[in-house]
Amino acid sequence: MKILEIDSLTKQYASVRALNGISFSVEEGSICGLLGPNGAGKTTLLRIISAILLPDSGSVKIAGKDHGLHLSHLIGYMPEERGLYDSMRVEDQIMYFGRLKGADPKELRATMEEYLTLFNLQDDRKRRIKELSKGNQQKVQFVATMVHRPRLVILDEPFSGFDPINSALLQQVIEKLHSEGTTIILSSHNMPSVEEMCNDIVLVNHGNLVLSGALDDIKEANRDASQLLLTTRKPLNLPLLTSSGPILNIEPTQAHSHRKGFGYLLQKRDDASNGEVLSAVALQGEVIHFEEKLPTLAEIFIARTTGMEKQNENAGTVTA
């Protein structure tokens, strides 16, 4: 089932077109990464999904229903810049936001206890927000976002301001939510985290949809088949390998298996097969790991967004 369906969404601010006919959908229970450079239209898109803004045209459906504030109980939105009442106590703040979402106070309290325990905030429940550290304030913000048990959670840069330990903790909590069937839309510039956690990706730039779909499919579609990664037990004689045969270029890199060894990234000739490459390398030493190199999310992101910039420059148009 699709929890979110976006169709031909446009939004214009004066002379700036923030969204330009964006369409995509998100399956229930998935973790979807929303990516794009600064000013791409991500925040506008998230605000429309959260019903803060209305689109100029196009539609948004949440769980098959036309979107609006009446569906706010289905959504939990944590914006990039946090917002809490400084003078409120932690538990009052969490309960207040939960009650505004229309949730039952008893259920809210039970969920709040669960999250306070998860984030080690039990002893801070009576403290005022302004008395907490920035990291703990962000934890409270996350709990307040989740306390009404939304089906769709939107997290805008959730890791910003967290130290590595708390980032890992947050990642665990997000994975727990995912395992319970909650759909998560994650907007972040932290590519490794997005790559590690997300099944689906939506990439926007200048208000246009650049690509969307399953992360594995996107990587597969963007892979360069001529690039290979291999690990050998002993170091290779690189000039000898590139002097002739199927290998165009080879350079040392990290070992690509859990076993100790010497890692290489190599570029094969277009007409060469993987078998020919392996045979050539095997003449010099034992190969313990071999794989076709898939691009990282960061590489796809950079390639696609800079590619669009060039296209725009060539066409002499400004789309955002």
Partner: peptide, 9 residues
């Protein structure tokens, strides 16, 4: 920035 959260509800 509380308004951004309140505006979702």
């Amino acid at each position: 920035r509380i308004v951004e959260i309140m505006a979702t509800m």
